[in-house]
Design a protein around this nucleic acid. Sequence first.
DNA 1: AAGCAGGGCAACCGCGAGAAT
DNA 2: TATTCTCGCGGTTGCCCTGCT
Length: 293
Amino acid sequence: MGRAPCCDKENVKRGPWSPEEDAKLKDYIEKQGTGGNWIALPHKAGLRRCGKSCRLRWLNYLRPNIRHGDFTEEEDKIIYSLYASIGSRWSVIAAHLQGRTDNDIKNYWNTKLKKKLIASMAPPSHHHLATATSSSPSPSHYNMINSLLPYNPSVSTNQLLTPQGMMMTMMGQQQQQLLYQEDMGSLVNSANSNKFIMSHQEHSQEQSTNNGIMLLSDVRSGSSTTSTVTRVKMEHLDHHHHHEEDERSMSSVVMEDYGMEEIKQLISSSCTSSNNSLWFDENKTEDKFMLYY
DNA sequence: AAGCAGGGCAACCGCGAGAAT
DNA sequence: TATTCTCGCGGTTGCCCTGCT
């Protein structure tokens, strides 16, 4: 049995609100309050609108102290930071920004901030692992990441962001498979570079730890702890002889199309330090990862 | 000046959670 | 306890505006 409609869609007005409707709604709520019942409110207020529409209009435009447009850099940082920590929970983010609505922040993110982030994050747009001589991300790239880092008690930001460090995010299943089959394979097989050792662990419960291992997970559900994970451990074959090469090499996989989840992971991913171990969750097939190394 | 494309944003849709019955 | 209903949320749509050709 389906859900009963919240209002009679045949008899409610839709589309943009007129100044008269705004005035009616504002006047009614200021005098009577919402009464805790949005469904009944439009009838009482003399509006031919769906209750949900009234609620949206009030919350996003009519209630006092709403601010629109002109996000400050400080607000940008807060949004980045919270997005990295909690993802697209716009209402929670909005709660941290006085006078901003979740809808405004969502729109601002989708139309501007995300692009800003991608522009900053995106080195040359190749789908291939770069060659050993490919360019490293620009300093601004790392600066951006610095400002985006999610809370991660186990890893310092310096460790994450040095050009010799690593950054990880998620890519789609296809790319992930591609990475397994081709990119990782080529890396594993690459002779005089770093050695990648990949192993599977069933039902691992290990998470981000102080020794630099990190498990990428859905920050909202935090549900990846019992998932099957694949461990990718990178070891230097010869710590004494590869420093120069390490500095030159910057292998990257860059996606041209970033979805919401990718962006979130892009921000929320962090990385490793001393032993260069990475974890990612195989079961999250929608997830995508990108590896700078 | 007209047509087109892309971006921005207001509003809608559908779902999950929780309250009420 | 099961069912129904409302609220609140995030994702998506579609209109309008602006800039480009």
